[in-house]
Design a protein around this nucleic acid. Structure first.
Length: 450
RNA sequence: GCGACUGUAGCUCAGCGGUAGAGCCCUCGGUUGUGAUCCGAGUUGUCGCGGGUUCGAACCCCGUCAGUCGCCCCA
């Protein structure tokens, strides 16, 4: 009877973030905000299962294999071996490809969809790097041909979201844009035979010293005479209203400029021209942007905090020529971008910039002086609930009830009449002001509190 | 998967060989129907886990697990 209970001390699992209610409240507001902007552009939502057949996920490439979580029952029986192996999805692009292939005949093209779900990656967690995190993806897929203006719509949507999220007001972010055709063309012109390895080094240009990059490219067997031209070529960055034309001219001025490079340059110019209305430095044409994943074939995007680019990209994506070629015999080009929601959110949280304070979605706490009044209080709460989020107090001393509202950040206390014939009263906790009010008609001045 | 560092109360940490501490948080109280301030009282720990050295270990040694930060890779 008095035997000591075994306690399993709770501890967080690294890389799997969870928040207290006040933080979660803001996280949900962020997700709602992103959803609203996506929908304001006419994109529809889909949700795919957390898992896919392992074969589907692993089709992406060897490099990601080691990060994939597979799913199995603790006690599998022999029949399980007949089932396909399952794995938690690693991103939302691969599930999208499968989804589009599977529902091809029921979708309306260009298919414009957004998707906000958790994804899982078996990485070593670090600041801004999780093993379970939200991604907010938005993509357009079309059959055979996808107009280029979608490549410009993606960063425009992203800019609108990032510049209006709560807590982001003082953050300087930058969308960096390039087009893979440019670098691919340049590597062709310079007769570089292992483009993937070379792109990796170019991608690291910001983190490493010039010498490190030089040596890296040398070890990647790039012709010594080609390294310097390649690096100076990639260093080019252009922002502002003339960015498109300037970057085009830069590329075109090179003696080794070929058709593929020119094609990429024209596309990049088009995208930059469409973004000319954004504030200075919001978007930059940056030839060092290549992205790690190998399925991108045209426009590529990356987004960083200008004061801390090494934190990593908080929003990346690009154009791919053929999304679902592995699953269906159709040519389906697409372009898409993904907000690394958790990385972005956690950064703002760590910097203490989230508008925290509320631990409850309630606008009003209806209190009661004693249990005899619970009936009246319940009735009052129900009336107010038609227009507000209302918590009915659990009772106890009035003093405690007020303190509860204070702690939970509920802005208003509602006092039902304590005796027949007396009026209702409502108290604004921030100002301390208490006034008579009618629950049917009272208007809260909630602006700015949520 | 590799390397460096760190594990003491819910949180931030002090203690570094001799009875386990502080601040914050939390709980209760400061009369009858009103929070934030103030005052008073109180609770909170296998000192990550296992072994070793020692009369004695939170402290020293070994191992292990977990976490943080770099690398790889990426949102």
């Amino acid at each position: 009877m008095s035997e000591k209970k075994k306690i399993y001390k709770p501890s967080p699992i690294s890389g799997f973030p969870e928040w207290t209610p006040d933080v979660r409240l803001v996280e949900q507001q962020w997700l709602d905000h992103i959803r609203r902007v996506f929908e304001s552009y006419g994109y529809c939502n889909i949700e795919t299962p957390a898992i896919e057949a392992l074969d589907v996920i692993a089709a992406k490439g060897e490099d990601v294999d080691k990060e994939i979580y597979v799913l199995e029952r603790l006690q599998a029986d022999e029949n399980d071996k007949k089932e396909a192996r399952l794995a938690l999805h690693f991103d939302q692009t691969v599930p999208l490809a499968r989804y589009v292939a599977q529902h091809f005949n029921d979708l309306i093209f260009p298919f414009k969809r957004y998707q906000m779900q958790k994804v899982w990656r078996g990485e070593r967690p670090q600041a801004g790097r999780f093993r379970e995190f939200y991604q907010c993806d938005i993509d357009v897929i079309n059959v055979d041909h996808l107009p280029l203006h979608f490549d410009a719509e993606m960063p425009a949507i992203i800019w609108q979201i990032l510049s209006t999220l709560s807590g982001m007001k003082n953050e300087k972010i930058q969308l960096r844009i390039s087009n893979r055709k440019i670098l691919m063309g340049a590597m062709q012109a310079l007769e570089i035979k292992n483009p993937v390895e070379v792109m990796r080094w170019i991608d690291k240009a910001e983190k490493l010293s010039e010498k490190q990059i030089f040596d890296g490219l040398l070890s990647a067997n790039v012709e010594k005479n080609s390294i310097r031209p390649l690096l100076t070529f990639c260093e080019k960055k252009e922002t502002g209203p003339q960015a498109g034309l300037n970057i085009y001219n830069h590329i075109n001025s090179y003696s080794f400029c070929n058709d593929l490079m020119r094609e990429g340059a024209e596309e990049l110019m088009f995208v930059m021209d469409q973004l000319a209305l954004l504030p200075a430095n919001a978007a930059v044409a940056d030839l060092s942007i290549v992205r790690g994943l190998d399925y991108y074939t045209g426009t590529v995007y990356e987004t960083v905090f200008l004061d801390d680019p090494s934190y990593g990209s908080i929003c990346s994506g690009g154009r791919y020529d053929d999304l679902a070629g592995n699953y269906i015999n159709k040519h389906l080009p697409g372009v898409g971008i993904s907000i690394g929601f958790s990385r972005l959110f956690d950064r703002i949280r760590q910097k203490g910039q989230l508008p925290l304070g509320k631990h409850s979605p309630a606008d009003i706490l209806v209190v009661m002086p004693n249990e005899d009044m619970r009936g009246v209080a319940t009735e009052t709460a129900n009336i107010l609930r038609q227009r507000y989020n209302v918590e009915l107090s659990h009772g106890g001393k009035l003093k405690k009830q007020l303190a509860t509202a204070e702690k939970k950040g509920i802005p208003y206390i509602w006092f039902p009449p304590f005796e027949d014939g007396l009026p209702h009263e409502v108290k604004n906790l921030a100002t301390g002001e208490q006034t008579k009010a009618d629950p049917n008609t009272w208007e809260a001045s909630l602006r700015g509190t949520s």
